[in-house]
Design a binder for these strands. Structure first.
Lengths: 337, 337
DNA sequence: ATAGGTCGTCGAAGCGCTTCGACACTCTCT
DNA sequence: AGAGAGTGTCGAAGCGCTTCGACGACCTAT
């Protein structure tokens, strides 16, 4: 293992000079810099992370807490995680992966031990038990999601309320009057997950404004659950012609079932999804959808944290504006004779 | 920030005593231990990670390198990642998330800086450029996947060759003679990804033994690509009655297309998948499948590393035996009159 | 009773880095 | 020509922890 001191000796300068070459925190003459850089390369020097963290009180690590459940929003989570890791690297940070399993203890542990300089939390509940801890520390943090009370916190999220409204507006403009909403699994609503509830508010609010009839049904993913849910919907509202789906694992089952029942998409019923673009474009019918900008969210969260760590910027709630892309799954409502 | 010294003072002992209470590396009287533990709790002490790493030359971090591509095997990757994180925590380790983007440089950086004590690599190519680096260091590592030459390395993987053979055996036993294999995207084969090629070897070998006709077609995910591929298959081999699918994002499109063409599963054609159980059970037809034991793989990799870090055990190739679960997508071959 | 163990604790060294103050220079401005 | 203001470099302190050797205190076997 090569140390700073060895590099210094090799280059014929003092250790502090090498350190300043590395950090750029003091000016160094061009010739010295070159000599040092040459030595670093020649010896294959890598600064020791622990020593650096100890001396500078900075680990250059950002912690990312992902939900333990692997059964839900997997593509979104993965995309966010990768975006976080990639963005962090471009700013010189590494990413520590925490699972939700440890809950608040993980926050305490990471904060207390100086393992990470900052923290990103995903899968935030409206009234998340980790939030008081975050407010009580001076360690920067960012949430991906929006809790009930975001004061004193940095949050990045899609504006799901607007997304809900947008979907409904699109269906309404096409003449649909009876809309069914296929939501996430009931457990998601029971946990009071922000995005699910806010979407619903957006949908309901706009439905009221436009005088549409709205039926919301949570749904476990998968074919069988979807079959039951769909049967109930048509039972209760036979005139349903528009669907809004916010549940990745219900998308394909829904399409398959509609097809099977002889209801053509988009001729007989229209479907709008709120999901990552990839899901929308790979479905058996290319779906009109509001994209969940997973990468963008991950990137923004990291950039906020880096800014805060550099002493720039403060808390802020960033709600990304939803965009609706029209594809092949929506069309004019059928004219009932 | 509370330090060891403060805890020591509070408990009326020396710093080293507190350290030994924490590590258990020397015997400590029960009364002293209690007093120290009480102080730790009272002061809310967390050992500083950097200082610990510097002094002990151990970071208690395991690096996990995941592929950058988020478009492929997402659920598997995610499951492995979560299993790695969870298992690592139970052994007192944290997980550093690296993306494949940096490639070999990441290996050098992490190894050189002492950021992590060990490393797990996913998405291993048969002739992966990171392997020489791993062999050249004394830092323990584990691969999830199997390269062409695993000598001097620890590898954990499903025995894909056996998995391929198993699928074919099952179809053969049901009387199918003409089998089509829907593979991963062409790029996966071009990269010489181990699992894809080994599956193919297993399939071909058993096909030869049993005298079956085998047609292998790589396939991009999604509905449209699958439609093209399927058309070609039936064009070339109209008598095809058995399918083996190794491509998560081709599963649902395949089922939809077969249904659409009036080919009933399993009455007219049988489908066996190689995929995580979750995909198999959530599909519109519950799929007979060989499970990719993602969690098990993640867990095993971590446990091997922990053992190596504790000075137990050495390099080893662990090939998990495949298990085929019969569900609703396979049945006897139709008798051609 | 004394030599030899074991047990529990302490002090001090040191891990590899960052950073502060100091110091010798070289410029500029008057 | 001398004061003042940079520049570029160095030495030393110290970050919070682990770990080694040392040392009493107590126990056992001779």
């Amino acid at each position: 293992m090569v140390t700073l001191a060895e590099v210094a000796q090799h280059a014929g300068v003092s250790a502090s000079t090498v350190s300043y070459v590395l950090s750029g925190k003091r000016s160094i003459s061009a010739t010295t810099r070159q000599r040092v850089e040459e030595s670093i390369r020649e010896l294959g020097y890598h600064p020791n992370a622990g020593a650096r963290a100890l001396a500078s009180n900075r680990s250059n690590i950002i912690a990312l807490m992902i939900p333990l459940r692997t059964d839900i929003y997997v593509p979104v989570m993965m995309e966010i995680a990768v975006a976080v890791a990639t963005t962090a690297r471009t700013h010189g940070y590494d990413v520590l992966l925490l699972t939700g399993e440890e809950g608040p203890d993980a926050v305490r542990r990471v904060t207390g031990s100086g393992l990470a300089d900052a923290m990103i939390l995903m899968d935030v509940q409206l009234d998340d038990e980790r939030l008081p801890l975050l407010r009580g520390t001076d360690q920067p943090s960012a949430l991906i999601g929006l809790p009930a009370d975001p004061s004193g916190l940095t949050c990045v999220d899609l504006d799901f309320r607007a997304a809900g409204a947008l979907c409904l507006g699109h269906l309404a403009a096409l003449g649909h009057r009876d809309i069914a909403v296929i939501g996430e699994a009931p457990a998601v609503y029971e946990r009071h997950t922000g995005f699910a509830e806010r979407t619903l508010e957006g949908l309901r609010g706009r439905a009221r404004e436009l005088g549409l009839r709205l039926l919301h049904r949570p749904c476990e993913g998968g074919y069988d659950a979807m079959a039951v849910t769909l049967a109930r919907i048509f039972d209760e509202r036979p005139g349903t012609t528009g669907f809004v789906v916010q549940n990745e694992s219900a998308v394909e089952p829904l399409l398959a079932l509609l097809r099977q029942q002889g209801r053509a998409v988009p001729e007989d019923v229209s479907v709008v999804a709120i999901c990552p673009d990839q899901v929308a474009t790979q479905a058996s019918v290319r779906l009109t959808s509001v994209a969940v900008p997973a990468q963008e969210m991950g990137r923004r969260a990291v950039e906020h944290l880096v800014a805060k760590l550099d002493g720039r910027g403060g808390d802020e709630v960033v709600l990304l504006a939803p965009e609706l892309t029209v594809r092949a799954s929506t069309g004019p409502a059928p004219t009932t004779p």
